[in-house]
Design a protein around this nucleic acid. Structure first.
Length: 187
DNA sequence: GTGAGGATGCACT
DNA sequence: GTGCATCCTCACG
């Protein structure tokens, strides 16, 4: 299970845990996207190693956080071997623990608007640039846990979102994975 | 040093 | 469906 696409699928249904100020917030991962290798023109890494995306070239199990549109942070988990730039973008989670804190971090009325998008979940979980490059294996600040949830869900795959700038062969890859019918999947 | 544009979200029409 | 906020990073000079 080293391939980013397998890792991406494997993350579906796992618990993403965020800890800060002594609080524990968490949610079940319901939607992810895989970004893989130099040939993936949708990936930040396809132009080579830059200051921004260098974390993707590092060891698996690290966190890649960056700002997009000057507004939103994106959360990625680095995968595969060193120098083979790959990561899984976490696009949506289903809130579990610390829901009250998430409401404080986000200015929304309803629970299903809390974390149903990549920029939304980082805000709900207070994930910022300072987590960039951190490891998830140390289980501090941010990590992933296995939980006992019903295996009773279907993982659907589809093309990735918001990558119109990429070449067609990359755009057509069905590297977006999500739980079919889950209402926390992004729109 | 400067300019272009983005792995989105939200408020409008 | 369209427009725009908002700022960091990259590429080029």
């Amino acid at each position: 299970m080293n391939d980013t696409r397998q890792v991406a699928k494997g993350l579906i249904g796992k618990l993403l845990v965020r800890e800060y100020d002594g609080r524990r917030l968490s949610g079940i991962i319901v939607e992810v996207e895989a970004y893989r290798g130099f040939d993936d023109t949708a990936s930040h890494a396809h132009k080579g190693l830059t200051e921004r995306c260098k974390v993707m070239f590092g060891d698996a199990g690290h966190v890649y956080v960056y700002l997009t549109y000057g507004v939103h942070f994106m959360l990625n988990l680095v995968t595969e071997k060193k120098y083979f730039p790959s990561a899984v973008l976490v696009r949506a989670i289903e809130p579990k623990e610390g829901v009250e804190d998430m409401f404080k971090n986000r200015n929304v009325e309803v629970k299903y608007d809390l974390t149903n998008g990549p920029g939304k979940l980082t805000k709900a979980l207070n994930i910022k640039k300072n987590l960039n490059g951190k490891s998830i294996t140390s289980r501090k600040s941010l990590w992933v846990e296995k939980i006992d949830i019903s295996k009773d869900f279907i993982i659907e795959s589809a093309p990735r979102i918001g990558i119109d700038y990429a070449e067609e062969r990359s755009r057509n890859q069905k590297w977006r994975f999500f739980i079919k019918g889950n209402k926390y999947v992004s729109k």
